[in-house]
Amino acid sequence: MLILVIGLVVFFCLHSVRLVAPHWRETIMQQHGAMRWKMRFGMITLLSTAFIVMGYLQMRVEPVWLWFPPVWTRHLAGLLVLVALFFAGSALVPNTTMKKKIGYPMLIAVKIWAFAHLISNGSLADVMVFGSFLVWSIVSFAVYRRRDRKAGVIRDFESGVQYDLAAFAFAMVSWFAIAFYLHQAIIGVSPLV
């Protein structure tokens, strides 16, 4: 459990820098260069993610069950993950409608992904991982949206259907890769069962 907690704390502290200290982040990027910041950010993110995965897999060996979700929640989770992947694609592809209207589609993706996994899994490890991601994404989205309203941010770029279709294609390809191979290979559980 300690490895999981360390991974989660490091991951969320790192990903909350922009949330709690945006000016400090910008100052460090100007002093040391954006590339150096991104490399350090990426390395620490990979390390913390590895801790989260290792800790999660260790806790699954002898799980502490809080509840036993019904089978239909797995099917609902599969559909919700597809929707989450569309929002993730909308964040990665430039000029999508979701990016223009919402501003932070990746945080919506994290919310939906975390919620989907919370309703379909009932162990303590699941609640720790997916519950913390859900809370973090809700708080982050609220803070960023409030900041944007206060600053009068207007997203006036030209969005188009071709960008939304690219996000949808990303979602479909990713979903099939995850559902039919990656989830089983990394987590050891097939979401299709």
Rank of each mutant, 00 (worst) to 15 (best):
A151H: 03
I102F: 13
H32L: 12
A179D: 09
S137A: 15
A169Q: 10
R155W: 10
R25G: 09
M35W: 13
H32N: 12
L118C: 02
F11Q: 09
L124C: 05
W72V: 04
V110N: 05
L192Q: 11
H23W: 07
F130W: 14
F12V: 07
D164I: 05
A21D: 06
I112K: 01
A77C: 14
V189N: 06
K38I: 00
N121H: 14
P105I: 11
L192V: 05
L192W: 08
M128E: 07
T49K: 03
P70V: 14
V173S: 13
G131T: 04
Y144M: 11
L124K: 03
M1A: 13
R25N: 09
L85G: 03
V139I: 03
F86M: 01
L134N: 07
H117I: 09
E62C: 00
V10N: 12
A169C: 12
W113F: 11
D148M: 06
C13P: 00
S132W: 00
A179P: 01
G7N: 00
M172D: 00
T73L: 04
R25M: 11
V139M: 01
K111N: 14
W24R: 13
H183A: 06
T27V: 13
K101A: 11
G103F: 06
S90P: 01
R60K: 14
L118Y: 05
A185P: 00
G122S: 00
M98A: 15
L47D: 04
S159H: 08
M128W: 11
H75V: 12
F115Q: 05
A116R: 01
I52V: 15
W136Y: 15
L19A: 01
L19R: 01
R18K: 14
R145L: 13
S16Y: 05
P63Y: 04
L92K: 09
H15T: 10
G33M: 05
A114T: 02
S174F: 03
W175M: 07
P69L: 07
V143H: 05
I6Y: 08
F168L: 15
W136R: 10
A88L: 03
L192F: 12
Y56P: 02
A125M: 01
R147H: 08
G131Y: 00
A177T: 11
A177I: 07
I186E: 03
F68N: 15
F141K: 04
N121R: 10
Q162M: 10
W136K: 07
G103V: 06
R18T: 09
T96I: 05
Y56S: 04
L118Q: 07
M1F: 12
F51I: 05
F115W: 08
G103H: 01
A91K: 08
D126S: 11
P63I: 03
W67T: 03
V9S: 09
